[in-house]
Design a protein around this nucleic acid. Structure first.
Lengths: 349, 349
DNA sequence: CTGAAAGCGCTTACAG
DNA sequence: CTGAAAGCGCTTACAG
C-alpha cells in the first residue's frame, strides 16, 4: 500500500500473484484460475480498487465510451431542447450502460470535425448523432465522418451516403397510420403541416406517408392543404394562421411533430375553432406534453426505448467491426382526445 | 507519417523540435516561444492531430471530465425523466463545455459508491448530482462521497452535512412570491399540494415559503388545506381528488411542482371546477409543458441556465482546491393564465 | 494457468 | 525558452 492510490500492483502483492494476473482476473479472463480470480476480486473490493480507466484506455486504445452529439437548428432557443430528444437521451444512456459503455454528451458542436475531436482524441470509440432538421447545416460534418471511416450512427436522416449509418423510425408508416385514422373518423380535408424539403428528411417521409394514405383512400393530394412549418411551436401557430387566412376549408390536420401540433392547437383555438369538433389534430413523436394538453393529443409514438437500444447496439457493432443492417423502429398510433370520433374520451386520468 | 496514428513525436519531427516542446505548445504554455508555438500548432492542424486524452489523463491524473448523475424515485417510470432536469442537463453540458470539460451522463446508479466508480477510476474529476425527492434513498451514497472527500455538488438538497456541496434555488422566496401572487388577486383559501417531509427538501422549503406568505398576510395556516403529493402528475391528481372529497372550500392551489400542477388541473376540471374562475393554480419549475397547457400555467421559473453554470463552476472550484460559498439561484414568478386576476390573458401566442 | 517485460502517448520535474 | 528522461497504470503478446 504505502502512499498514493491503490494500483493493480498493490492487489497483486496482497494476493501473492503477478500484476498481469490481477489485470486478467478483474477483466474476467478465462485464463485465470477461478479461485485465484475470486481471491483477487475480493481483495480489490476490500481496497476500494478500481481499474484506472486512463491507463486502460491508453494501453488498449479503446475508451469504452460513446459520444452523443445533439445538433439543433441554430435559430432555436439555446435553452430549449426538443423534448423528444431528451427522451431519447435517457434511453441511450441506459442502453449504453447495459453494454458497459460510458456516455459523453454534448449539445454544442464547437468542433467542425467530430471524428478528430472524439475518436482521434481517444475520447470516444463511436458517435451517436441526434437532431431534427437543419440537415443541410451539418451534412459537411457527416461527410467528414464518412470519409474518415468513423464509427457513427445518425438518427432519422436518410440518403445513400448514409447507408448503414442511419437508424430511424418508419416515418412513412407512422404518417400513413395517422392520416388513415383521420380518414377513418370521417375527416375529408386533412392538412399537412410540416417541412417537405430534404432539409428535414424525417418530415419529408411523414409527408410521403400522408400522401400514401390519401391516395390509398382514393383522395387527391391538395397543395393548398400543405403548409410549411419547422419543428417549433411558433412555426406551427404561424402555419395555422396562414391556413385559416387562405380560406381553404379543412377539418383535420396532421402535423409533422407534436411541437408543431401544440402551436397549431393554440392558434386554431384563437381562430375560434373547436378541437376536435371542428378540427381533428394528430401529431408525431408523443412527447410528454402530448398527454398533458387539453384536449390530450392523438399522436404517433416513436418508441424511444427501442430507438436508444438500436442506436447504441449499432454503433457498438461498428466499433467491433461487425456489419449489421439497421432495423427501423416501429411507430405506434396513440389515440387520445384531439381527434374525436369513436375513440374519443379514452385515456382520461 | 509512417504507420499508426499521429503522435506528438510526429509533430515534433516535422517541426524540428522536441516532443516536450510540442506538448507545451499545444497546451499554450508560456514557456514556448510564440513563433515556435504557432508553427507547431499549424503542423498539428495539418496532420489532424489531437492530443490523446487517455495518455494525457494517465500522465496528469486529471480527466477533465465531469460526471452528471441523475437519481430518481425508483417507483417512477424509467423512461420518463422529469422535464425540469432535462432542461438542467442541457445547460450543464453547455456550462461544462465552456470550461473545457467533457460531461459523462448516467441515469442509472448501478454503483453504490460513486466516488469509487467515477473519481477513483479516473473517469471524472468531479460529480454533479441531480434529483428530486427520494432523498432518503440515496443519502448513504452522499455520505460516502463526503467521507471520501469527493468533489461533488448536489442540486437542491439541504442539511448541515452538505455544507458547501449543495446548490439550489431560493425555494422559500419562490414559494413566497407564488403565494403572495395568489393573495394579491384576492384568493383566500390557498391549498398547498406537495411533500413537506425531509424526503423532499426542496418541497419542504416551498411549503415554508407558502406559510411565510400566509403569515405575512395575517392569515392562518390551515392543515386541512395541505395535501401530500410526490413529484408526479398522477400524484397531483390524487391529491386534488382527496381535497375535493374533503369538502374543504378552496379557491387556489399552490403546487410544489409543475408536474403536480398538471395532474391537479386535470382532476380539478374533472370535478367540474373552472380554472382560473373557480380555482387559481400556481406551479413551480416552469417546465416546457407549463406554457403549452391551456390555460397556460402561472409558475415559478427556476433559472436553469444560471443553475447549470453554478453547478459546473462550483464543482470545478472544488477540483481546483478552491473554496467557494454556493450562491442561491433566484426564482422568478411567470404569470400566465391559470390564476386569473389582473394579469390574466397575457402571454398569449 | 501464470509471470516478466514491453509499451500505449502523453506531462512534467530537472537541467541547461 | 528548450530538451532528455522518467513514469503515469494499465493490457497483452510472448514464453513457459
Amino acid at each position: 500500500m504505502g502512499s498514493g492510490k491503490t494500483t493493480s500492483f498493490d492487489i497483486a502483492h496482497r494476493a501473492g500473484v503477478s500484476q498481469a494476473t490481477v489485470s486478467r482476473a478483474l477483466r474476467d479472463s478465462p485464463l485465470v484460475n477461478p479461485e485465484t480470480r475470486e481471491r483477487i476480486k475480493k481483495i480489490a473490493r476490500e481496497l476500494n480498487y478500481q481499474i484506472d480507466r486512463a491507463a486502460s484506455r491508453l494501453r488498449s486504445q479503446h475508451s469504452n465510451t460513446l459520444a452523443l452529439l445533439f445538433f439543433e437548428d441554430p435559430t432555436s432557443d439555446a435553452s430549449q431542447i426538443n423534448p423528444f430528444f431528451l427522451s431519447m437521451l435517457g434511453n441511450i444512456t441506459r442502453a449504453a450502460a447495459r453494454r458497459n459503455y460510458d456516455l459523453l454528451v454534448s449539445f454544442q458542436q464547437l468542433s467542425d470535425d467530430w471524428h478528430i475531436k472524439y475518436e482521434v482524441s481517444n475520447r470516444a470509440d463511436g458517435i451517436i448523432l441526434l437532431g431534427y432538421g437543419a440537415y443541410s447545416g451539418f451534412k459537411d460534418k457527416v461527410k467528414k465522418l464518412i470519409d474518415a471511416d468513423a464509427h457513427f450512427v445518425i438518427w432519422g436522416a436518410t440518403g445513400p451516403h448514409l447507408r448503414g449509418h442511419s437508424i430511424g423510425c418508419d416515418n412513412i408508416k407512422g404518417a400513413y397510420d395517422a392520416t388513415t385514422h383521420l380518414l377513418s373518423i370521417g375527416r375529408k380535408n386533412i392538412a399537412f403541416i410540416g417541412n417537405k424539403t430534404i432539409d428535414s428528411p424525417e418530415f419529408k417521409q411523414r409527408y410521403e406517408g400522408y400522401c400514401k394514405a390519401l391516395t390509398a383512400a382514393g383522395l387527391g393530394i391538395d397543395p393548398e392543404l400543405q403548409v410549411y412549418a419547422t419543428n417549433q411551436e411558433t412555426s406551427g401557430a404561424a402555419a395555422i394562421a396562414e391556413l385559416v387566412e387562405s380560406g381553404k376549408p379543412f377539418d383535420a390536420i396532421f402535423t409533422a411533430s407534436d411541437l408543431i401540433a401544440i402551436g397549431a392547437i393554440k392558434r386554431l383555438r384563437k381562430a375560434g375553432l373547436q378541437i376536435p369538433d371542428d378540427v381533428s389534430v394528430v401529431g408525431f413523436d408523443d412527447i410528454p406534453a402530448a398527454s398533458y394538453l387539453s384536449p390530450s393529443l392523438t399522436t404517433i409514438r416513436q418508441d424511444t426505448i427501442a430507438a436508444g437500444q438500436q442506436l447504441v447496439d449499432h454503433v457498438i457493432c461498428m466499433i467491433n467491426g461487425e456489419v449489421l443492417e439497421p432495423k427501423k423502429v416501429v411507430p405506434k398510433l396513440v389515440i387520445r382526445d384531439s381527434c374525436g370520433g369513436k375513440s374519443s374520451a379514452a385515456n382520461q386520468l
